[in-house]
Structure formats: structure tokens, C-alpha cells
Simulated scan of single mutants.
Amino acid sequence: MTGRDFEHRKNWVRERLHLLGECFAVAIHAYAVMSNHLHIVLQFNATVSAAWSDEETASHWIRLFPPREDSDSARALKRQALLADPGRLALVRTRLGSLSWFMRCLAEPIARRANREDHCTGRFWEGRFRCQLLCDERAVLAAMAYVDLNPIRAGVVDTLDATAHTSASERIDLVRHGLPPAELLRPVAGTLPASLSISTADYLQILDWTGRALAPGKRGRIAEGAPAILAVIDRDARRWAMRVSSYRGGWARAAGGAQDLIDLAARIGQRWLQGIRLAWRLS
């Protein structure tokens, strides 16, 4: 143990996520920055970045990759060079709608910054990211709850309003500073207009209940009554709790309805996918 505190690096990740959200064709629905890992719930739409004008595309790209001499004149020269190269612009549009490029633009700057701080070189992240397809809005909401509740499940904090470096903490702060709780649940960052069908207040209620339901052995977290909105999202509260907790290992390449997983298996040439049996149980 070095005795050093690396908590400030969580802010690096959060700030970088917001920057990427302004540049990519993405909606960031949820995130949780933990001590040794990161969870993000993302929605991409490559057709959006493909439709951006040359000027929009150049602006997003230069925001991501500013010139070394970050001055107005240097940015203007880089913009001019990019606008004069249609082939390069086409490639940039593709990258701005790509999950792989999003993760690359997240991981590499954080790694370089951490290595400079540590006066070292070499690998910072353990390995390549793993991703999971979310087939419907219910799967998205369950994944968001799983992600936002990471600090509570890990025992870092006891209550939802004590969390930090999560999308839940951002939403709570927004409500405290005047966001109408009845407003539809929007991404915490991103260029896509991708609101979900429940309100911010309903989502925070669901989070509070789910956090207590998934920690039944700890005082003060016994779930008494589920919020009414859960009856709209799932058949019953216990199914919902199982759906969320299954992100620990029950779901694999995808999460959603049984038929969605069966169709996905057929598209990728497999006879079966882990999670289909679970999906039938939850149907």
C-alpha cells in the first residue's frame, strides 16, 4: 500500500465522459466510477453523426483532438485542413458514431494522465472493455439501476444521496438545483435526444427501493413497499429486483426479452445465448 489517495482520478473520468458526450453521437444514460472499475450505459446512433455537416463534424473532432498549440489560430488551421479533406471527414464521422472509438477516447487520455502523475509508462487499464447489448427500455433501466447502485452494493456508502461519481448523484444534484422531478428521464450527457419514458423522480424512487431490496440483510435497507411505477415497468417488484441483480452474471452478451435474445443468437449464428433461460423466467 502506498498510502496515496487517488480519489481525484474519478473526477478525471467523470469530466472526460461529459466531454465525450458533447462530441460523439451518444447518449450517456448512467455511469459509476469505482475505485478499480467503471460502468457506463450508452446509446449510440451512427446515423446521427453521419448526418452532421462538415462544420459540425470538424468542431466535434477538434474538440476531442485539439492542436498541440491550443490557440485560436492553430484550431482554425486544423479545421481548415480537415474541411479540405472529404475522405478524412468521412472517416471522422464514422468514428464519432463508434463505441470502440468512444472507449478509446475515454481510456487513452486517462491512462496517459495517470502515468504522468505516477512518473511511469505502460498499461494503466487492465484490458479491453466488455460490452452488453440492451434490447429494450426495461433492460436499459435495469442496467442503469445496477450501475447507479454500485457504490451501495459495494458498501462504499449506505444511502443513495451519499453516492458520488455516479449518474444518480448528478441527477440528485440537478433536482436539488431546480430540475423539475416530473421531467422525463434524460441522459446525463450526450448529443442524442434520448429521453426514457419515466420521470426523473420515478427513477430515483426505483433506485432507492432497489438499493434496499438488494441488500435485505442490512438494517434500514429492508424493502417494504415498491413504488407504484414498478408495476408499469415489470410484472412485480421481485422480478424487477432479480432483473437488476442478474447483471452480476445472469446476463451475458445481451439483456432483454427471451425472443430478443433468441433473435440475436440467430443473427450471430449461435444456437443459444446465456441469459435466454433467465429471460423466460422473467417474462
Rank of each mutant, 00 (worst) to 15 (best):
L83G: 06
L19F: 02
A27N: 12
Q43E: 15
T57M: 14
G3M: 12
C135H: 07
W251D: 07
I152F: 03
L273A: 01
G256K: 04
E117V: 15
S49G: 06
P181N: 02
M103P: 05
W61G: 02
A162I: 00
D173F: 14
Y31E: 10
E224T: 11
L19K: 08
S53C: 10
L282H: 06
R212K: 09
R88I: 04
I206W: 15
A164L: 05
L99Q: 14
P216N: 08
R130N: 05
Q274V: 09
L141C: 03
A32E: 04
K78M: 15
E170C: 02
A114Q: 09
D208H: 08
T210M: 14
Y203N: 06
P193S: 15
A254K: 04
W240M: 12
R130V: 02
E224K: 08
A231V: 05
R9W: 01
W61M: 03
R221P: 00
I206A: 14
G217E: 13
R16K: 07
D148N: 13
R123S: 08
W12D: 01
D234L: 04
R186Y: 06
L261V: 06
R88T: 13
T2M: 14
I229Y: 11
L133A: 08
L204F: 03
P86M: 08
S169P: 00
S245K: 07
A241G: 03
A84V: 13
V156F: 07
L17E: 05
Q43M: 10
A228P: 06
M242D: 14
L185T: 14
Y31N: 00
L96F: 11
V147T: 15
A255W: 10
L230D: 00
D173K: 12
R219G: 08
L207C: 01
L17R: 11
N150I: 12
R138C: 13
M144P: 05
S53K: 10
V13S: 05
H37W: 09
I110D: 02
L278I: 02
A50H: 13
L207H: 00
G122E: 06
G21C: 07
Q43D: 15
L20P: 01
W240P: 01
T121F: 06
V48P: 07
M1K: 10
S59T: 15
A145R: 11
A182T: 14
N150Q: 15
R253E: 12
A213K: 05
